[in-house]
Design a protein around this nucleic acid. Structure first.
Length: 501
RNA sequence: GGUUCCGUGGCCGAGUGGCUAGGCAGAGGUCUGCAAAACCUUCUACAGCAGUUCGAAUCUGCUCGGGACCUCCA
């Protein structure tokens, strides 16, 4: 079997993946900031790296998957007036930050479960690691790469760049930026005057009196900077150097660049060997993001309650939609595309279920070419996934197999065209890739025995009506069941099956 | 302005030199009492121009168009 290759943003090349510790993989992915509800754009990295997590396990690795929750910082709740935060009301009327954080963490977990994303091995919170962050900042100050200014601490990017360029780790190594070029282009920010250099970034921010999230530190009351939590937590749980760091492309600069700088000072190494970045979901060609005011929240997506949505979309449709594209490409949202994904997924799933019920007794294939073709299509699942997780190509192969599966079921293809061992392999591999690697689930609920009994009864009545040529009755049964979302299908052999919408 | 990516048929998308992915939609057909489903066949492509090459969607240059990052952002 071919070796797994991944596109490493650090080297801008596709590289063979080898883990630091044989048999084990350390995977860190930047999780959500829980100051608001997750939207479709957020779904992409979590589904993308869920596939990475699942596939690495399929390859036999024991994976420690760390995905943080950012619950510290300068937060404002969506739609809540800013003055709430600085009010002097009784404590129960005030916005309690951990209450806000809890609310959105719960919503986030709800969405992750709906997508059938596996739980990460460790889900550390920034607020739970204030001490680790402070220790790390102290180390950076002690080494001379950070300075205190008016209760805040800033990272000295210029000094870092000078010293660490000599060690092969210039600031900008990940994003391909040259420090000198960007100094002029950095815009004005708050408290800019505290920084020695515009490119410097905060490790610790002094909390103004009205700020409600604050912790005691050697530099006074404040809260951690935007990048330090990931460095502190990835080091704690995965070590000074680990295998894969993932996240959205928009995090490449400055977030991941800053992480590298912080960790390099403390641990003398670039923290991760492979940096994987997923591309954005766009809407009308523009990135979905809160600054563009074009986000569709996951709850809106699942219920169809957003002006841009023509209908509700099942979480599995979203998952499938995302898998149809390679993770490094942008993916454009649209109702037509989502509806197409829904239909495609239904077709795939139905054939997948039918496949599990097929049986072939002969181990001699009567159609050698078809048999070979099936074996190749299945073998390529691994080949394509090993090529930087090309889920789109795997799905294309699956759909070619769908046609063959349906052909055998409908007897367009001879029952013994493929051998029983080929069928068994097909059944096994499809199950592994559809359910375990891709994490897909059926759109409809599992059939309930009682409901099934009722429907079978109606099917029998309809059959009898048809024999009498009483099409009024048979069509009534068919049409009214269809109205309830139950679709009857007359099979080639005269039997009738049904699907629930 | 700096860095960088992209432009594939009605829609979403795969694809880095030759073997025209795939899904959805459209058209015709088979099956069916009629449908649906399924299956078979089929129409729309590689932004434009020039170049390299026996041969380019794929390499090079230019033009046009769009995006991302440089600020919280998946």
């Amino acid at each position: 079997m071919s070796a797994l290759k991944v596109h490493n943003s650090l080297t801008r090349k596709k590289e063979v993946f080898t883990s630091i510790t044989p048999g084990h993989v350390g995977l860190y992915v930047c999780g959500p900031t829980v100051s608001g509800e997750s939207h479709l754009g957020h779904a992409r990295p979590f589904i993308t790296f869920d596939i990475v997590f699942r596939y690495l396990q399929y390859l036999g690795y024991k994976v420690r998957y760390v995905r943080n929750i950012t619950d510290a910082g300068h937060f404002e709740e969506e739609g809540r007036a800013a003055e709430d935060k600085i009010s002097t009301k009784a404590i129960l009327e005030k916005l309690e930050p951990m209450e806000l954080v809890q609310k959105y963490t719960n919503l986030y977990h709800w969405a992750m479960r709906a997508f059938n994303n596996l739980d990460p091995s460790i889900e550390p919170t920034a607020t739970g690691h204030i001490v680790e962050q402070i220790v790390m900042i102290e180390k950076i100050i002690a080494d001379g790469y950070a300075y205190v200014a008016n209760g805040s601490v800033y990272f000295d990017v210029e000094k870092y760049n000078t010293d660490f360029s000599a060690k092969g780790m210039p600031y900008g190594i990940l994003s391909g930026r040259v420090l000198d070029e960007q100094i002029d282009s950095t815009r004005e920010l708050d408290n800019q005057e505290e920084k020695r250099n515009k490119a410097d970034f905060a490790l610790w921010k002094k909390a103004p009196p009205e700020h409600i999230m604050r912790w005691v530190s050697p530099w006074g009351e404040g809260f951690p900077g935007w990048h330090i939590e990931c460095s502190a937590m990835s080091t704690k749980y995965l070590g000074k150097e680990f295998d894969i760091h993932g996240g959205g492309m928009d995090l490449q600069f400055p977030h991941h660049e800053c992480e590298i700088a912080q960790s390099a000072v403390c641990n003398h190494k670039i923290p991760a060997r492979y940096w994987l970045h997923n591309n954005m979901i766009t809407i009308n060609g523009k990135k979905m993001g809160k600054s563009y005011n074009n986000v569709i929240k996951l709850s809106e997506l699942f219920t169809g309650t957003h002006p841009a949505l023509e209908q509700a979309y099942h979480p599995m449709v979203i998952r499938f939609f995302i898998l149809q594209t390679h993770y490094r490409s942008t993916l454009d949202f649209g109702n037509e595309a989502l509806k197409g994904a829904e239909k495609g997924l239904r077709r795939l799933w139905e054939a997948y279920e039918n496949l599990q019920h097929l049986s072939i007794t002969s181990d001699i294939a009567t159609d050698e070419a078809l048999n070979t073709n099936v074996l190749q299509l299945v073998a390529d699942f691994d080949t394509f996934m090993n090529d930087d997780f090309n889920t789109a190509k795997v799905l294309a192969n699956m759909f070619e197999l769908v046609t063959i599966i349906n052909g055998i079921k409908d007897k367009h293809i001879a029952p013994n065209a493929i051998s029983s061992s080929t069928l068994t392999l097909l059944q096994t591999k499809m199950k592994i890739f559809v359910e375990e690697v891709f994490g897909l689930q059926p759109l409809q609920q599992q059939n309930n025995d009682k409901v099934d009994g009722v429907i079978q009864l109606l099917i029998d009545i309809r059959k009898q009506a048809k024999l009498r040529k009483d099409y009024v009755t048979s069509d009534k049964i068919r049409n009214e069941l269809a109205g309830l979302g139950i679709q009857l299908k007359d099979e080639k052999d005269g039997s009738i099956s049904y699907t629930l919408a």
